[in-house]
Design a protein around this nucleic acid. Structure first.
Lengths: 262, 262
DNA sequence: AAGTGGTCTAGACCACCTT
DNA sequence: AGGTGGTCTAGACCACTTA
């Protein structure tokens, strides 16, 4: 047994995890480098293979390592893509859009030297309970969901879903299973329902199995979920829920008076 | 082997996890109820104990279950506490504070029927690289960190750290190891450095070992990290980094024109 | 003392990737 | 073919909680 005994946690696999964490932070392996294979760690630390795996599990769940079957265990590297979630209007009184058209994401990706593509889906479903409540609907009422699935350089990035009351979308381009060229805002404006205000709710949580599969994330990567309710004078217009793989994104909000700096 | 074979994932422990997930979602166990003990699952599904543990690991990492040594495995329940991270001024031209004094958190907790308490620490350290950059400092320059450790009903809730350039804090109440009664904003105002604008950066990530220990979270609970840089006309004033246990909080941002609704 | 989850071992075989 | 991580077993003992 060659594992350093820190003070507190006695379990062997935790001390092993702590030692690997220390070596990682000391920069022993750089970039997306491969760690020693399990057999080597087994011999080096003089423990059973399952103990090595328990230790590596800890670091995988912390988001530091990633395992690739048949290849090895690697340091994870995380290039993030920033997204401006909101900025107040530059000219007072002028309205900034509360929804970012795909073009905004594409521009942000381009600025980072990456290419963004998006798939589109339209579906009609019973509203989830929290969505119904925010739209002021009865539980189980139908909503139109317009979904954008975004990838940067083939890497899954976000799922954005706009939820509309079925009666609002009926008979408009919002029922078409294709994106509206100028963005859904254009349709809403034509309906006299221009969004002037909104509220964002932000939470982080671990993905469920379907989400983990779509985002291609294992344990150790949470989702960042942004839920925006937009309003006009008549009430709520839509709920936009956007889920991001948290290791690939950072959301920005500009606040207050920005003529200062920002 | 009594585990239902879904279609895709053949590994036994994954099918077992999927079946437990299904039973959880079907409401077989409610509230913070205890699941069958490992030995019982072992017999019921006809697998080895380690296989049961692998399956339960999956659900723990998804944040659905929590294990208590010597007691059992339980459904996790998550009462969240909402926090208004920002709202634009109600009267145009009037300034809303960009930092929420402890009193705001206390009021939000009270509204949820909980009691909030906070510990305070002041320390002088070399600035982290990203903090230095945002404050416009050279790498390794000293900063004053004023830290609020907040708990609701003894449950760890958030760690908020305000970072000030050492030269700014020198000779002021910001150097005192106690909270400023009216909030640090009062001191800044007296220095002629009233914050008028800011930018928030939001990310989610898994906690490191110290963070997991302080927040009393195991695997399956990410952190939500809010980093706010505030400005006045002369430049950046401070960086406020707030870390929340993501299962205990939800951040709100009010956007645009709120006279509409919200 | 009994019951629960936590740790650890030793070994087997499988699935995937590279050569 | 050989190496890597992935799965699974069977059994042992430890640590913590409750009665």
């Amino acid at each position: 047994m060659t594992i350093p005994r820190g003070s507190a946690p006695s379990p062997k696999y935790q001390r092993l995890a702590a030692d690997l964490r220390r070596r990682i932070e000391a920069g022993e392996w750089q970039g997306g480098a491969q760690l020693p294979v399990e057999g080597e760690l087994e011999r080096y630390y003089g423990v059973a293979r399952n103990t090595v795996r328990l230790a590596v599990d800890v670091l995988v769940n912390e988001g530091r390592l990633v395992r690739h079957q048949g290849k090895g265990t690697y340091l994870r590297q995380q290039p993030v893509l920033d997204h401006q979630a909101y900025a107040p209007p530059r000219v007072p009184g002028q309205r900034d859009p509360l929804a970012a058209p795909t073009e905004v994401y594409a521009r942000e990706a381009r600025a980072a030297g990456r290419r963004l593509v998006a798939d589109f889906e339209m579906l009609v479903v019973r509203a989830r309970e929290d969505i119904a409540e925010r739209l002021g609907l009865a539980a189980g009422e139908a909503v139109v969901v317009r979904r954008q699935l975004r990838l940067t350089d083939r890497e899954p990035y976000s799922i954005e879903e706009s939820h509309y009351r079925a009666g609002l979308a009926a008979g408009t381009a919002l029922m078409e299973p294709v994106p509206v060229p100028g963005g859904d805002e254009e349709v809403l404006a034509a309906l006299g329902r221009t969004e002037v205000g909104g509220v964002d709710h932000l939470v982080a949580r671990m993905p469920g199995p379907e989400e983990a599969a779509w985002f291609e994330v294992g344990p150790g990567t949470p989702l960042l979920v942004q839920t925006r309710v937009t309003y006009d004078r008549r009430g709520p217009v839509r709920v936009i829920e956007t889920r991001y793989a948290a290791d690939r994104c950072r959301l920005h909000y500009a606040l207050g008076d920005l003529t200062a700096r920002g």
